[in-house]
Amino acid sequence: MPKISQKAIHKYLRHDKNFPHVWCSGCSNGIVLGATIRAIAELGYKKDNIAMVSGIGCSSRMPVYVDFNTLHTLHGRAIAFATGIKIVKPEMKVIVITGDGDATAIGGNHFIHGARRNIDMTVILINNNIYGMTGGQYSPTTPYGDRTTTTPYGNIDPTFDICDLAIGAGATFVARTTAFHAIEAQSFIKQAFEHKGFSLVEIISACPVIYGHLNKKGDASAMMKSMKENVILIEAFEKLSDEQKNGKQKRGIFVNKIRPEYIEEYDKLVRSLQDEKGGE
C-alpha cells in the first residue's frame, strides 16, 4: 500500500476556522477521517468531485473539516440527501459519514432502502455503540447488559449486526473493521470507493470518554487493545468454538458482488425511451 504522507493529508483539510475539532481525546473518529483521506489520496480523486454527506452525531461532524463539497444534514437522513445528490450528479463520488444511532435507529429506513436500491455511494459507519453527542444513551448497537445514561440498570434491548442488516437489505459491498486496524480501514474504504453500488464499511470505534467510562472499559488504549483482541478476521472467527465466539466479532469483507446499480438502471431507462422516440 503506498504511503500517504501527513503533508498530503493536510491538503484535504479545511484549516481556516474549523479546528480544533469537537471530538474528545481518545475518540476514534480522527482515525477514520485519516483512513478516509488516505484512501481518497491513494485513488487520486479530485476534491471538487467528492460530496461528503453526514447526519447528526459525533461522527457526522466530520464533513466540516474536509475540503470537499460537504453537507451536514438532519438526524438519520444523510443517505436520503446523498441519494438526491447522486441522482442529479452521478459523476460525483458520494460518501456518507454516519454513526450507529444515526444510520440504524432514526435513519434505519434510509439505510435499508439505499442498500436495496444499490445506489452508488459509500457509507462509512462509525460504530461506537452509544449516542455520544447527547451524553451517552443506548443505541441499537449497545451490547446487552451495558450501562448508558438511559440504561441505568443495564441494557435489555437486543442489538443490530449492522453488516448483516446491510447484507439483508441488499448492499453489494459490506465490510467491517475497527479503528485499531487503521491500515485495513484505509484498504476497505478504498475498495468500497472503487466498488460500483451501495457499499458499507462499518468501523468499530472507541468512545472512551462516554461509553468506555460508563462501562469501565479503560482508557482509549485499553479499548484499542480490546478491539485488536476481540474483533478478529472472518477465517479466525469461524475456527473458534461457539463458546470462544462469545464476545468476539468478525471483521473483513463479507460481501463484494455486482448487482444492477440504480443510476445505471435509470440511465438505461432514459436511453430506451430516447430510442423509442427515435423510432417514431
Binding site: A51, V53, L71, T73, L74, R77, A80, F81, A82, T83, G84, I85, I87, V88, K89, M92, N109, H110, H113
Partner: peptide, 13 residues
C-alpha cells in the same frame, strides 16, 4: 422525510 431530503440534496447538486 426521504423525499424532502432527496430534493434538497438534488437542489444542492
Amino acid at each position: 422525510i426521504a423525499s424532502i431530503s432527496a430534493i434538497i440534496g438534488g437542489s444542492l447538486a
